[in-house]
Design a protein around this nucleic acid. Sequence first.
DNA 1: TCGTTTCACATACCTCGGGTATGTGAAACG
DNA 2: CGTTTCACATACCCGAGGTATGTGAAACGA
Lengths: 197, 197
Amino acid sequence: MAVTRAEQRAATRRALLAEGRRRFAADGYHEVVLAEVAKAAGVTKGAAYHHFESKAGLFRAVVAEVQHELGERVADAAEQHDDPWERLRAGCRTFLAAGCDPVVRRIVLVDAPAVLGWDEWRAMDEDSSARHLAEALEDLVRTGTIAQQPLEPLARLLSGAMNEAALWLARSAGPEAAAQTERALDRLLNGLRRDAD
Amino acid sequence: MAVTRAEQRAATRRALLAEGRRRFAADGYHEVVLAEVAKAAGVTKGAAYHHFESKAGLFRAVVAEVQHELGERVADAAEQHDDPWERLRAGCRTFLAAGCDPVVRRIVLVDAPAVLGWDEWRAMDEDSSARHLAEALEDLVRTGTIAQQPLEPLARLLSGAMNEAALWLARSAGPEAAAQTERALDRLLNGLRRDAD
DNA sequence: TCGTTTCACATACCTCGGGTATGTGAAACG
DNA sequence: CGTTTCACATACCCGAGGTATGTGAAACGA
């Protein structure tokens, strides 16, 4: 089989990303040593620096990847529904469930803000997940389900609430915790509705 | 002036904590080099390791200090009011304002979860701020202002909402952002009330 | 087909910073 | 006043991120 250079390059990059994702999720950014990631991926540290500008650069690429997948999952869940209100709820539920995944939890929610800086983290979050939340809220205003109001602060509050709840859910043993959290979130959201339930 | 050993020890510890707090807030945990903190505090690295078990140990002590002060401020603000509902609102407003302080923002909200681990961060947060939130919610249930319900998930949602909102507020230029966030938070909380506004 | 260029890495090396082991001089103590 | 304690200072180790340079096999042009 002929292996072109482009194919080999892509394969190496994928291997580094995959191994990085595993280790960042399992051990946390600081505990991960780049040379070991490279070794496990079948290459040396030089390859890693050829593909990424630094250890933080590899981490950034992993975060972007995970964020993107997360956003897709949330969007897919929302699209299962037609009613804007149910779209929002479905997205929230999916996010809460996904946040329990150690990959999302450790990489995106815990380490990323500290490693990449809060501003960059927020920009990446906006591109993947938070954007969907903002759109969902806009739909709710457009359809008159909730009153017109500044949506940016509201989106931030809800985004933070779900981030933290996801982190907490992953640590709470009770299987009823997820359901309780969803109910509590429902109650909060219902406060925004204009008409009765 | 006679300087006893205990006094000197306490002074050195205070100096290390103060300088650490400054640098951790300004540059972030990773960028801070322990030897420079010690030097700026008028001692050497050896002194730092005599007082704290590691760089993370100094950071942990700083986090505990800042968390404690933050909790006090929130509690003080709440105690200005008698009505449980207003106590909660006052505490939330105070927290949102305090979270904009770079010391709280960078040290407690951004770096601490990654450096100390989310579990330890959460335990410290519970001891200082989150405990007050939980008590406020219990009061609201006791007085019948909000319906009886599992309070732990609700407290987590609200805590996360305010953490994220505080982080965002510190970055948003507009002076109306704080007021808008408080209004949005009010709307969410109002959803919990049993009776009309 | 063959010389040349490109490039995807490997290898060797540097440096900085966290951590440790040990020394020291002045209080504390009997 | 001799001895002990202890709050540091000094010297050293080493692991890990980052860099500079080498290399061999594809890619390419003639």
